[in-house]
């Protein structure tokens, strides 16, 4: 099959629907998470992580930049680590990761649950689960 021909379909015939949007969403959020984690690690290095933290602690901060994640390190003052700026970065990472992850669970479930009714049920539960985890996560980030 000629690859270049198969990709010359006009946009309207490619099936631009919700599933297609979520397909590109999954890819773009993966890149966004890479960018945010790298950003948090660079921020940690600027705030003095080189002296006060080991690599595992820096990575833990990178995966979720909220201040309880550096509590057990030698960082002298948690102040710079719990600013609204880092809470906003952490919130962004949380919302992106939750949406990416819950959609991934739906993709897996779709391989095993094939009836329209079953898939609708899965989507309902997933949306409720995603909203619940987003709100609980935001609560944890902004109250800790």
């Amino acid at each position: 099959m000629n690859r270049s021909e198969s990709r010359s379909l006009p946009l309207t015939k490619r099936g631009l629907n919700f599933e297609m949007l979520m397909w590109i969403f999954t890819r773009l959020t993966a890149l966004a998470m890479y960018a945010l984690i790298l950003f948090a690690i660079i921020g940690a290095l600027i705030m003095g992580a080189r002296q006060d933290m080991n690599l595992a602690d820096v990575l833990r901060w990178g995966f979720m930049p909220n201040s309880p994640h550096v509590q057990s390190t030698d960082v002298p003052d948690l102040g710079p680590w719990s600013t609204p700026f880092w809470r906003i970065v952490a919130s962004g990472l949380l919302l992106i990761a939750t949406a990416h992850g819950v959609h991934g669970l739906v993709v897996i479930a779709d391989d095993y649950i094939v009836t329209p009714r079953g898939r609708n049920t899965v989507r309902g539960i997933s949306i409720a689960f995603m909203l619940m985890m987003s709100f609980i996560g935001l609560y944890v980030i902004w109250t800790s």
Binding site: A97, G101, V102, G104, L105, I108, M133, I136, G137, V140
Partner: peptide
């Protein structure tokens, strides 16, 4: 990997 992370992070946040 995705399932493992989903379970761990859910338990961790909760």
């Amino acid at each position: 990997g995705g399932l493992g992370m989903a379970v761990f992070i859910t338990i961790h946040i909760l």
